[in-house]
Nucleic acid binder design. Sequence first.
DNA 1: TTGAAAGCGCTACCAC
DNA 2: GTGGTAGCGCTTTCAA
Lengths: 371, 371
Amino acid sequence: MSKDSAEGASTRTGIKAVAALAGVGIASVSRVLSGQPGSSPQLTQRVLDAARQLGYAPNALAQGLRRRATRSIGFVGSDITNPLIASIVSGAEGVLSLAGFSVLLTNSGGVASVDAERIEVLLQRQVDGLIVLPALEDDPATLAALRNTKAPVVLIDRTLPEDIVAHYVLSDHYRGVGDAARHLLASGHRRIGLVVGRDVRPTRERIRAVEDAFDGLGVARDLLVHRGMLSAEHGEAALEEMLAGDAPPSAVILGGNQLLEGALRVIHRRGLRLGIDLSLVCCDDVPLSRFHQPPIATVMRDPDLLGKRAAELLLGQLETPSAVEPVCLPTWFEPRASCGTWSEKIPTKTAAKIPGTRRRRAAASTDLVRE
Amino acid sequence: MSKDSAEGASTRTGIKAVAALAGVGIASVSRVLSGQPGSSPQLTQRVLDAARQLGYAPNALAQGLRRRATRSIGFVGSDITNPLIASIVSGAEGVLSLAGFSVLLTNSGGVASVDAERIEVLLQRQVDGLIVLPALEDDPATLAALRNTKAPVVLIDRTLPEDIVAHYVLSDHYRGVGDAARHLLASGHRRIGLVVGRDVRPTRERIRAVEDAFDGLGVARDLLVHRGMLSAEHGEAALEEMLAGDAPPSAVILGGNQLLEGALRVIHRRGLRLGIDLSLVCCDDVPLSRFHQPPIATVMRDPDLLGKRAAELLLGQLETPSAVEPVCLPTWFEPRASCGTWSEKIPTKTAAKIPGTRRRRAAASTDLVRE
DNA sequence: TTGAAAGCGCTACCAC
DNA sequence: GTGGTAGCGCTTTCAA
């Protein structure tokens, strides 16, 4: 038993030190500092004074243990180094920290087994909820880990088997990529290359979108799909391979922003003129892509919003659990010179980055003219 | 008192459920699962079986409370959306998670008061250590928060007053920017613009580096320093202002990667030819900057390594606290066409991104020829 | 080698 | 209104 009958000021500033200094019971301190009603003004003041005097801050571990809630959430993503993911995390963190939640961040490096392991660690840490961007949609270990918890889970851009209880924030890839494909087809392209990642929702949606674009315009499907990692290396290899084939596509859609750097290496190496020798569309914005010569046409979305919505959804579930429809956020095609005879100038106004402006969808697919 | 004398299997799988199922004492379970020696093989096996059978995972909150260590660290940065910061976080997270630590991530948005508040939150959560990139080096609230803890603190690219016990991982901005400035001066530039952020170490080092470059080459100091936020908006405003002046600089160094986008807006808007009408050097890499026409000369560093070193330093302190010299990591100037008569081609090989290659310093400043 | 029991710092229940 | 006190799930003496 510690020397508790003493003045208490020397103790490692816990709640009982405050109680001792204020000359009140430990429970009263807790009540006052937790903002619970039912304490006299005097007592409240005494507690507050003592707490301030001691520089007391409650131990969140003990609170969490007792309350069975930590006000922390876990985020597991593949790679925060990808600006897309970074924006999602940033959006989520903003909402969560405003709500008094902390974020435990984890990178899986896109390895499914790591996803599973990290989810488990976060659950051990008693996070109140999880935002996950798993590498795969059907990894048994990941699914098991997810099934293993009562904490609400929000998935971003992934759909899981029905038996998993989870909530979804998705992107309408179908729309943006479809618009892009229609633009290309309407510009006269007849053979389109599509570089995609593993078999997850965005990949499936993008393929479907391009296929439907062919069908919708009555053009014979001629789609080269290249699957692999969404890395610069794979972008380089994929494009190289496509172009080296017998009948290379005249237009390529990159289903991931990391692919762009690799693709550009190929393009510069081969001395291809984008928009003339080859049309290129990238999915998801990359910082300087609009300053490239020519600017890179892009299927845009608002990743920050994705993170925000995921966080809001999660907070909502913590408040009142309920079945919720998946949230699906817009995606829009921004035609730029890399995809053909498009004369858009390089942006010169700050306005180009103002959120409100960004959200609008390009009217591209409607005001096209067949060549 | 809960119904504890029963079989226990129905209890919310805590350590006592495992003990009950294994038919052993609670302490033995703890010992076995914590990997402590001194348990008979049979007992060990029984505990392991029971734990597996129940899918038991220890509650990290309770462990932390008891052990007075959480195996978690807090990271407070300005904005994870900045690829530089994202890489630092990523590097740190990699090292930490390998060591069994979790990362609590926080964004301050570059607001000093938020820094302080977030540090406090993390300390309440009993993180074992802190990696901080504060907005300011002399914010009283931040300093107070930092002084307030016994947990080791590692600062990245900042130096604090001596009375704060902290460890440092710094970048040798002086070298890289100095090389850049010498390159510019040797190329004939006589008036150099420098856009920097607030008065923190990188800013001071960069200014000093350029000044010393002037002095070292015996050129009369003609340096235009523009201070502000390191944002695209400020990059745009700063460059615009510099160019609008009576005697605009012929070369500009951007002391922050976020400035580049803004600067490029000005440059494209004005139709300036980089490397001819204006020479430009950016500090810290931006994804596509080497694919820009012309490629953007850059003062490089390895931000991932910065994060790794910070994490390693922190882990070291947790193991054995000790006074440690600040770590200072290299920075190197990569001249590219944006800074003048330089004929470097756009990279065509994947090799351009291989770490080993990156680390070497450009020999730029030595093999220059006065014009 | 093993287990009982004392707390880690806090909240919430209950009696005053 | 206020203050004891039980106990969140765990680790760690200490005795057996």
